[in-house]
Design a protein around this nucleic acid. Sequence first.
DNA 1: CTGAAAGCGCTTACAG
DNA 2: CTGAAAGCGCTTACAG
Lengths: 356, 356
Amino acid sequence: MTRIDDVARLAGVSTATVSRALRGLPTVSAATRRRVLAAAEQLQYAVSPSASRLAGGKTGTVAIVVPRITRWFFGTVVEAVEDFLHRYGYDLLLYNLGGREQTRRRVLRTANLDKRVDAIILVATPLRPADVAALTRLALPGVTISSGSGVPGWPRVRIDDVAAGRAATRHLLDLGHTRIAHISGDPDDELAFTTHLDRRRGYHEALRAAGIRPDPSLDVESQFTIDGGIRATTELLTRGEPPTAIFAACDEMAMGAMSALRDAGLRVPHDVSVIGIDDHDLAGVLGLSTVAQPAAEQGLLAARILLDPLGVRAADPYPGLVPYGADTDADEGSPRSVILPTRLVVRESTAPPRAN
Amino acid sequence: MTRIDDVARLAGVSTATVSRALRGLPTVSAATRRRVLAAAEQLQYAVSPSASRLAGGKTGTVAIVVPRITRWFFGTVVEAVEDFLHRYGYDLLLYNLGGREQTRRRVLRTANLDKRVDAIILVATPLRPADVAALTRLALPGVTISSGSGVPGWPRVRIDDVAAGRAATRHLLDLGHTRIAHISGDPDDELAFTTHLDRRRGYHEALRAAGIRPDPSLDVESQFTIDGGIRATTELLTRGEPPTAIFAACDEMAMGAMSALRDAGLRVPHDVSVIGIDDHDLAGVLGLSTVAQPAAEQGLLAARILLDPLGVRAADPYPGLVPYGADTDADEGSPRSVILPTRLVVRESTAPPRAN
DNA sequence: CTGAAAGCGCTTACAG
DNA sequence: CTGAAAGCGCTTACAG
């Protein structure tokens, strides 16, 4: 294994100079830099991250924690973050909670992240007070994406879930529906986090604004997954007269609902309209109406916000990559928290209720 | 920041003993171990990975390289690998190529991985000779999943893509179809790798075995994505009389095909049958017939195979997690290469051709 | 602009 | 079973 002193010897300089030249520090003459780079190239030299980190006090690594990488939203966020961070030379450590409380605790609470990363991105991760305390104790920069309770001092990137729930419900109301069901996360579902509470609130608000009292029998709790949508819808259909429309808290649940409705012999949207939230990759294929949220943009924005306290040089070498017009969420008291806009996308799964 | 000598002082032992006790080495008395653990607990001590790695010569980190984490197969593989490796205390460094040749080269060829990880998992990553040479030079253990060209000495985990293509095509033939189209990856599509070549070969073999000469006008190249499926199918429909069935090289393409057919006013399976390969999460919802491949199992198996050369203690503390009965691919000359079985799953998207 | 030297926080022979 | 000491391969003041 070639080390820094091999390069130093070949280039005829000290290891300190090699270190400086290789990292592009300005205090190296052009001629010296050239010689060092040539020597490093010739020897196929790669700096040892461990040694560099120990000496330099930085890990060059960011941790990202997601509930389930296989869900559309989280996969899309991770992809965007990975792309951005690698451009700036950061490594991405992936933690996939997989709905296991034990894993969540191990990742957040133990000394796991300590000394291992320079910063943390938490995506829709439930945080108990003890977790927040542990994260605060780490004293690292961090960002949360679509997380309910934040970490003091950490910016937050998210959408307005209440508004999204309202928009979805209002779309159904505008079509003339009055028996509108809602399927969403249950309290035990770690993946749902608090997102489902906000979306449900939007549902209730929209109904009440239309003079409709929410009917508990039309409100079913389940998991934020395809299967969760299937189960919730099946349950809904056993409760008596079916609703004329279903608002699912995420597209995956909406897809499950479409599947369950079809299996029950009901047509979408002829018998029942369905709308979700997300704008999943496959929403178009399924003709699913939805309230679109910008997933990749949330990841990109979070990554960019994170790089700032890490003292990353270039301000934004990829202008245009990050969406403009993001509102600063001043209420939070956090630096540069951001709420990104959502957008109603009407496809074939919603229509006026059948006249009967 | 508390360091190892803080713990040593509090426990009244040397740092060497703290190091041994914390890592569970057997050469520490029970009483001493207890005192060390208590001291570490009390001080909230976390070992510095950088220092530990530099001194110990191991990074405790595995790199996984995937074309696109957002595609079903890759997301599922990463989730399984992450779970398995974290159980054994390894960190997972994620590299998402995103179809960028430049990124692929940066990750594989430069000194990127050198000294940074203990082992590498390559998922469906195209390897040019220079890449193979670079990987070989690293002299690290590795595994490839569903990759065409392997790395000498690295085990391979995959399915038999030719057989999968054959099975899908034969299913359509068995239903009575003779005008069977195929949509698959094109040579420029990094994501498709060589997988599409094998699946196409299976298609050709099955046709020929049935006495049908492959019709080039029914064979369309596109991307391994939903959009790719849409484009390929649209192209197919412009070429004259539509086929009575389409075999798509992956479920995402098949879903795109279903969407394009619907947009063209054709019904599935009444007018055109569609089958894919994968058994995507949403295949059930869409009623898509497919040749199922075990994605999580390929990830798990690859992770387990990888841990062996890393000298991980426990053989398999999670028996049953990894599928048995995997055939050893002796031809390869690689240690413990494995081919996992696929399975035809018939749903509603395939039916006999319409009588006309 | 460059170098000598200390130091980052561990682990590992080696000795006992 | 335990400790003293060297060493892992860099980076960073400090001095010039």
